[in-house]
Amino acid sequence: MNSLIWTVIILTVLGCILALVLSLVARRFHVVEDPRIDAIEKALPGANCGGCGFAGCRAFSDAAVKAGNLDGRYCPVGGTPVMREVAAILGVQTEEKAPQVAVVRCNGSFANRPRVNDYDGLKSCKVKAALYAGDTHCPFGCVGCGDCVAACAFGALSLNAETGLPVVDEQKCTACGKCVQACPKHVMELRNKGPRGLRVFVSCINKDKGAVARKACAAACIGCGKCAKVCAHEAITVQDNVAYIDFTKCRLCKKCVAECPTGAIHAVNFPVLPKKEEEKKDE
């Protein structure tokens, strides 16, 4: 019985002493932090995806508070609503950006782009792209090892087993830009989501001459320039045998889509018209 009492007493005293030490140490080494850092971090999505260019949401908040402004600091995941909140905390203005989404600029499905050899190394786009031009005759397009899928922190990307191409889940994509960085072929692009998700883009970046590009892939942009001619808004430029649609100028008239001889231009989320081909609105 005696020993029990002693045990209790010793432990209690020990606990008290240690608690005292702990609290003293905590006070002695207390780091004074601007409360706005916590506030901003709380306002941010907390995904720590690095899409803003900082190591995480905390680093973003820290940098923003230190600088006292939001120049060049934008959270693509939270978008304008979150950035307004952050701006309010800091008492500054933020730039208004249209919501964006990642798009896959490659039509090179197994059906469109015949395979001419079999890659047998590590399943990594980075390794494969550094090794050689790829397993098709198109040296520009997607190499299909899924580095973008691995890079996506939001589960918005997946490889379609039938086409071999990555597919973006618009609902989940936050436009953080990780896939754009991960893709060694620069196939991924961040584009404005468009009103009601409507958007038109050239799903090809093949810079080979038309005949070569077409031989490599049935749905390649052959740089014929028909789309640029038909476009009434000067949104389309053809450079290095490949067309590009400027999403800030495009008015979604879809004339180019109808004009494209290879079907390289995709119009997404438009209501299905009876005469439209099914394939052009997938993805």
Partner: peptide
């Protein structure tokens, strides 16, 4: 070149 051969790093 009709056959498809393997390609991998060394």
């Amino acid at each position: 070149m009709t056959d498809r051969y393997l390609v991998s790093p060394s």
